[in-house]
Design a protein around this nucleic acid. Structure first.
Lengths: 338, 338
DNA sequence: TACTAGCAGTCGAGTCTACCGACTGCTAAT
DNA sequence: ATTAGCAGTCGGTAGACTCGACTGCTAGTA
C-alpha cells in the first residue's frame, strides 16, 4: 500500500471517528480503528502531512485532529458516494416504504410530510423544494366572489397544486361578468402553464376585460415567485448543541429556514452547478458556514421537478444522509409520476 | 398607604424589575425603584411576607427574590390588564397599521403573515389559529381530474379558505360522470358548511354516486380536523437562552409548535374557560411549564373566529404582549369582517 | 528509505481553595 | 411601624495545582 493510499485511509478513519464521537481524533484511535497495521507514530506523521495539505486541523497543540471542510469534501468524493443507496438501514427503508405506500393528500401536504419523514430518518432538519408552478399545466380556473368587491382567483394545476390570488374589484360587478371572465381565462390558460406569455384578447366589455387582466397578471406573477419550500424538523437544529456553538447561531439558522427564500435560491444554485453535497463554507451563505447540505433532485416523468435535502452540521453522517435523500427523492418522484 | 397596598407595590416592582433584568431582585433595588419612600429593611420585611404567601421565591439564601407563577398572576390581574391597548409603542402601532393597511393574499397567507408580524413586535414566538372550516359557507365545489384514477376535490369557502382532498377513483370514469358528480356536490353543499349533516341523494348512476360520496365524506372529514395553526418566529425560542435553561427544552418547544395539534387544543381549552393569559404551570402541558401564553380571540362579524397569541417565557413583558395581541386581533378581525 | 519506539513537552479540563461582594435576617433603637 | 446597622450565608470568580491525553521529535531498526 502506497503512502498516498494510506493517508487517504487515515483521513477516512479520522472523519468516520469524528462523526461518531464529535471529539478530536488521536493518532492512537486511528491506528487502532483504521484497519491499517501501522503504529500510532506513523499515523502521526501522516497526520502532519494531512494538516499541511489542509485536510485536518488541530484545535490546540496537544489535541487530536478534526477534519476541515476540505477533509470532509475528500471523504465524500472518495468514499461516500458509491454505496449511497445501500447505506440506509432496514428500519429506515421500511419507514420510507410505509410512508410512500400509504395514502396522501394534495401535493402541498405530501411534500410537507415528506420533509418530516426525511427529518425523522436523518435526525437533521430537512427541506423539500416543490415543483415550480410553471412546470405544471392549468386544469381549471375559478373566479369565486367572496364578498362585495373581492374575487378569489384560483388555478388548479395538473400536479395537484392550487394557486390563489385575491383580487379587489369594483363592487357593482355582476355575477354574469365574473362568469364571463372565468370562461375567458379558462380558455386562455387551460392546458398551458401559468407562466405562458399569452395575453388575453379583449371581449369588448371593459369590466370583464379588467377582471380578466387582473386575474391573469396576478396568477402570472405568482408563478414567478420563488418555488415553494417545505421545512421539516427545524427543531433538530436546536438540539445540536455541540455543533452550533452558541444558541444564537441555532436561532439564526431556524430564522433562515423560516424566511425560505435564501434556502430556495441556494438549493437551486447548487443543483444547477451539479453539486449534491455542499460542505461548510463552500457556498456563500454566511449563516450556513457550519452546515452541510445534502441534496437530491427528484424527477417527475423524467424531468427534474424539485429537490429534497438534509441540512445538518458539517459533522454529519454523509453516507446515511446521501442514502436517505437518494431513496426518498427516488420514491417521491415515482409516486408523483404515477 | 396600608401595608397590603405597599406589598402590592413591592411585588409589582419586583416583577417589573425582573422582567427587565432577568436577575433576582434585591430589596435595595425595590426601595430605589418602586417610588415608595421606605427603606430597604421595610421592603425586606414585605418580601418575607410575599414569600410566605407564595408570590416570590429565593433561588438561594443570599439572593434577591424572583416572582413565582402566582406572583406573575397577581401582577397580570392587578396591574397589567387595564391599560392593555395603550401599552403599544408608537412604532409598533405604526407597524401594525402598515401591515393591515397593505394588500394581502388569500386567507392562509394572511394568517401566516400575521403570525410573523406578532412575532416581530413582541420578540417572541407567535401563533394564529385560523377560523375553523365549518364556520364558513361553501362557495364552490370543484372536482378536477388530475391523472388517470385521481380526482382532486376542492371546496372554496366564503372566507377565502380552500380545502382539498385527493380521491382515488376507477380509471375508466368518464369526464361526464365527473361533471355530473360535481353538479350534485355543488347543489348539495353550496351555501351550507362543510360540516353540515346533509347526505347526498342517489342519482341512479352508481359511478357518479360513488364519486359524490367519496368527495363528500372526504371534505366532511377535513372539516373535522383540528383548526389550522400558523406559527411565526419560532426561532425566538432558541434565542431565549436564559429562560429555557437547556437547549433541549428549546428544541422540545419548537417541536411542539411543529406538531400543531397540542397547541391548538390548548388554545381552545383556555379560551373556552375565558382565560387570556396562561402563566407557567397553570395549564397542564408539561413542556410548556416555563412558558406563558397571552391570547386574544378575533371576531369576524361579531363572532369569535380564531385566536392570536404570543408564546414566551414566564418572564415576559405582559403589558406589551397584551397590548400587541389586543391590537392585532382587533385589526385582523376588522380586516376579515370587511 | 520507511517505519517504529519512546520520551519530553504542551495544553485543556477538572479540582481545590480562598476571597469578594451581594444579599438577607435579625435586633435594637427611634 | 419603621429604620439603621450588623452578622451571616452563599454564589461566583480567580488562582494554583494536578492529571492525562495528545503531539513532535529523535534515535534506532529492518
Amino acid at each position: 500500500m502506497g503512502v498516498d493510499e494510506r493517508r487517504g485511509a487515515v483521513l477516512r478513519a479520522i472523519v468516520e471517528e469524528h462523526i461518531q464521537t464529535a471529539a478530536p481524533v488521536s493518532s492512537q484511535a486511528v491506528a487502532r480503528a483504521s484497519g491499517l497495521s501501522v503504529s500510532s507514530a506513523t499515523v502521526r506523521n501522516d497526520m502532519t502531512a494531512l494538516e499541511r495539505d489542509g485536510y485536518v486541523s488541530q484545535p490546540h497543540t496537544s489535541a487530536g485532529r478534526v477534519p476541515t471542510d476540505r477533509g470532509y469534501r475528500y471523504f465524500v468524493d472518495r468514499f461516500a458516494e458509491p454505496s449511497a443507496i445501500e447505506g440506509l438501514g432496514i428500519n429506515h427503508q421500511r419507514a420510507v416504504s410505509e410512508f410512500f405506500g400509504g395514502t396522501h393528500n394534495a401535493l402541498e401536504e405530501l411534500l410537507h410530510e415528506t420533509s418530516g419523514l426525511l427529518a425523522r430518518i436523518t435526525q437533521h432538519a430537512a427541506v423539500v423544494v416543490g415543483p415550480p408552478p410553471e412546470s405544471a399545466r392549468v386544469r381549471r380556473v375559478d373566479l369565486v366572489p367572496l364578498q362585495q368587491g373581492q374575487v378569489l382567483a384560483i388555478a388548479v394545476l395538473s400536479n395537484g397544486a392550487v394557486e390563489r390570488e385575491l383580487l379587489a374589484v369594483e363592487t357593482d360587478l355582476s355575477i354574469e361578468s365574473i362568469l364571463a371572465a372565468e370562461r375567458v381565462l379558462a380558455s386562455l390558460l387551460s392546458d398551458s402553464t401559468l407562466h405562458s406569455p399569452l395575453t388575453p384578447s379583449p371581449t369588448g366589455d371593459a369590466a370583464i376585460d379588467m377582471l380578466v387582466n387582473a386575474a391573469h397578471t396576478a396568477l402570472h406573477r405568482r408563478a414567478e415567485h420563488a418555488d415553494p419550500l417545505y421545512v421539516g424538523g427545524a427543531s433538530r437544529i436546536a438540539q445540536e448543541q455541540d455543533a452550533f456553538s452558541t444558541t444564537r447561531t441555532a436561532a439564526t439558522l431556524i430564522e433562515l429556514l423560516e424566511q425560505q427564500v435564501v434556502v430556495v435560491s441556494l438549493v437551486r444554485d447548487l443543483l444547477e452547478s451539479g453539486v449534491t453535497v455542499s460542505i461548510g463554507a463552500e457556498h456563500s451563505i454566511d449563516q450556513l458556514r457550519d452546515c452541510s447540505l445534502v441534496l437530491a433532485p427528484y424527477r417527475i416523468e423524467g424531468e427534474v421537478a424539485g429537490t429534497v435535502g438534509v441540512l445538518g452540521p458539517t459533522r454529519m453522517d454523509y453516507q446515511h444522509a446521501l442514502a436517505a435523500v437518494a431513496t426518498v427523492s427516488q420514491q417521491l418522484g415515482s409516486l408523483l409520476s404515477k
